[in-house]
C-alpha cells in the first residue's frame, strides 16, 4: 500500500483514567473515558478550560500515558508518539530559522528517509500551494501572519498524510475571517485524505461546522464524557445554509446548555 492510499484509522479510548501527583497527593484529571471514533470520522472535543481535553488527546498522540485503560489505533495499543498520528498546536511549533518550505520538507524527511530531495520538495510545494501559500514558500515564520503560520503547520502535518490527525485548538488565536478560511481549507484536505480527525476547540460554532460528532467533557477533576452530539448536516457544508438550518440553533443551545447550566455550577 502506498502512502497516498492510506485511509483514516479507527481510534478507541478504553476506560481512560489519568492522575497526576500533586502537593496534596494525587489529582485525577480524567476518569473512565470511553470513546470509539470510526475511520475517517471528524470528532471535536469541547469543554471548559482545565477539564482535561488536552490530556485526553495527549494519550492518543502518545505524549502522555494513561494511568488506567488503553488507547488503540486500528486495534494496536499506542505506545508513544508516531508519524501515523500528527499533531497541530495553537502555537504552530514551527522552526523559526527554517523557511515555510523547509519546515514542511523537514517533516516529510523525518518519515521518508532516503527518498530523493526533489520528490519531497515538490510534494511539500504542492501541499503549501493547496493551503494558499504558493507565494510564501521562502518566507520564515517570523515574516508570516498567524493565519499563514498555522497554514504552514497544517501543511506540514498533512503532507505526511497521517491516518490520524490531532488538532489542539488550532484556530484559537486567529481572527474570525482567517479562522473561517482555515476551517474550510482543513475540511478540503480532510475530504481528500480521509484521515481520522480529533480536534479540541472552545468554539461551538467551529465544532458544529467541522465535525461529525461533538464530544462534551464534564468539568474536572475526574472529567469524563458528559454528552455526545451527532451533527447531521450533509457535506460538503455551506456555512450560510448551516446558520439558517433550524437544527443548528437547537444543537448549539444543547451544547451551550451543557457548558453553562450543567457544568457551570
Amino acid at each position: 500500500m502506498t502512502v497516498s492510499e492510506r485511509r483514516g484509522r479507527r481510534v478507541e479510548f478504553n476506560a481512560i483514567g489519568k492522575s497526576f501527583p500533586s502537593d496534596s497527593g494525587c489529582v485525577e484529571v480524567l476518569q473512565g473515558v470511553n470513546l470509539s471514533v470510526a475511520a475517517g470520522e471528524f470528532v471535536c472535543v469541547i469543554g471548559h478550560s482545565g477539564c482535561g481535553k488536552s490530556t485526553l488527546l495527549n494519550t492518543l498522540s502518545g505524549f502522555e500515558t494513561p494511568s488506567t485503560g488503553s488507547v488503540l489505533v486500528e486495534g494496536e495499543p499506542v505506545e508513544g508518539p508516531g508519524p501515523d498520528r500528527m499533531v497541530v498546536f495553537q502555537n504552530y511549533a514551527l522552526l523559526p530559522w527554517k523557511t515555510a518550505l523547509e519546515n514542511v520538507v523537514l517533516g516529510l524527511r523525518s518519515i521518508r528517509r532516503g527518498e530523493p530531495r526533489e520528490l519531497l520538495v515538490s510534494e511539500a510545494k504542492a501541499m503549501l500551494e493547496t493551503v494558499g501559500l504558493g507565494d510564501a514558500l521562502d518566507c520564515h515564520p517570523g515574516e508570516l501572519s498567524g493565519g499563514m503560520r498555522q497554514r504552514v503547520a497544517i501543511a506540514r502535518a498533512m503532507a505526511m498524510k497521517p491516518p490520524v490527525l490531532i488538532l489542539d485548538e488550532p484556530f484559537g488565536a486567529l481572527d474570525p475571517i482567517t479562522k473561517e478560511e482555515l476551517q474550510e481549507e482543513l475540511l478540503t484536505l480532510w475530504r481528500q485524505q480521509r484521515c481520522t480527525v480529533l480536534m479540541i476547540t472552545h468554539d461551538i460554532d467551529e465544532a458544529l461546522f467541522l465535525s461529525d460528532r461533538v464530544v462534551m467533557l464534564t468539568n474536572g477533576p475526574s472529567a469524563s464524557i458528559g454528552e455526545i452530539l451527532s451533527i447531521p448536516f450533509d457535506r460538503p457544508r455551506d456555512r450560510d445554509s448551516l446558520l439558517h438550518d433550524q437544527r443548528y440553533g437547537e444543537l448549539r443551545n444543547r451544547a451551550l446548555e451543557f457548558l453553562y447550566e450543567r457544568q457551570g455550577g
Binding site: 471548559h48 478550560s49 472552545h202 457548558l259 453553562y260 457544568q263 457551570g264
Partner: peptide, 8 residues
C-alpha cells in the same frame, strides 16, 4: 476572560 467566567 474564559468562556465560563464570562458567562457568569
Amino acid at each position: 476572560l474564559d468562556a465560563l467566567t464570562r458567562g457568569h
